[in-house]
């Protein structure tokens, strides 16, 4: 995987983790306004990044847009990626 693709993917993983963590917090603190605000800012950034990734490198999920031939199956798959090659 090229450095630029890996850099976007790693940022996506980072922001995606933040949304997971905020979701767990909000499940038990649903009225925490600051928490919801923080979650929404991570969610907006995640949407932005995943659209960029999808356009440049293909689908992250099977309900993303794909060129022909079907790009969802293109490797490397998550367990095959060398995450340390990246310069960030």
């Amino acid at each position: 995987m090229h450095n630029e693709q890996l850099a976007i993917l790693k940022e996506l993983m980072e922001v995606g983790f933040c949304t997971i963590e905020m979701a767990l917090f909000l499940d038990t603190h649903p009225s925490d306004e600051r928490g919801v605000g923080l979650h929404n800012s991570y969610a907006a950034r995640y949407k932005e990044l995943s659209e960029t990734y999808n356009m440049k490198y293909g689908p992250l999920t099977s309900n993303d847009l794909s060129k022909c031939p079907w790009e969802f199956i293109n490797g490397p798959w998550p367990w095959e990626i060398e995450y340390i090659n990246c310069c960030i």
Binding site: L9, T61, F72, W79, Y83, I84
Partner: peptide, 13 residues
């Protein structure tokens, strides 16, 4: 469920 093509953490071995 839907699969996302990423790990939750960048695994290094």
């Amino acid at each position: 469920w839907i699969y996302e093509k990423k790990l939750e953490y960048p695994v290094r071995v």
